[in-house]
Amino acid sequence: MQINDSIEGLELVYQRPATLTDTPFHYCPGCGHGVAHKLLMEVVEEMGIQENTIGVAPVGCSVFAYHYMNIDMQEAAHGRASAVATGIKRVLPDKFVFSYQGDGDLAAIGTAETIHTVNRGENILIVFINNGIYGMTGGQMAPTTLIGQITSTSPYGRDEKLIGYPLKITDMIAILPGAFYVTRQSVNTAGNVRKLKKAFQKSFEFQKLNKGTCFIEVVSNCPSGWGMTPVEANKWMEENMFPYYPLGDLKVPRTEKEKGSNNA
């Protein structure tokens, strides 16, 4: 069958943002990092803040985030991205600053930096990609690995008696007064992608108003680390990750809430 893909009479409604470089992502097929990168850069493009945004990449799969995001960026030591972002923001308070970190980076080795950065109410966005595994080093157990989940370092399944429970660090973050906006989103469906994008937008808007730390957890997949196809991985995520890490806002600014109740 001959497919008509002519754009005659059509208008452009979606394209790769110009704030991404032309470098193809090195991520495995189906990896949620790509979606998160793309959305973040879409928001930077749409808000016209490319010239005023500085990002901090972590150690983990997204260590090369700066290859893809066409903005000034710094690459931090493992776990220290929020401290690095603090340093940047403190000396450049009028710029938009974000850190982009995985679960091992943010919720294991960088726990102290994460909590204290938020507790200071650093006026930055922290993007937390939670796929419950160490992807870059080859699929080891992460602080957010689910009970019973098999990884290369929990070959018999995560045993909470040995290694403790999957860390709901976002819930911990939400109770800190320095946190202004805390939400948990995902990238598995078009609807969730739209919600995540909205969360990025809000966070940058709040940052412009010096509101404090915005913290966005993105429950994501790791098809390679989980040993599944991307489609299977998303399904597994929905069935296993979402019940433990439910999507939605954990802390909404009061003004937002009031607005919501007025509408209701």
Binding site: A76, A83, V84, G87, I88, V91, E113
Partner: peptide, 21 residues
């Protein structure tokens, strides 16, 4: 700007960020 960090680890990484900026 003066900031008392949560540890020397954090402090030196703030230095990294601020110097890089």
């Amino acid at each position: 700007i003066v900031l008392q960090a949560e540890s020397e680890l954090a402090a030196i990484n703030m230095i990294y960020g601020a110097s890089g900026a």
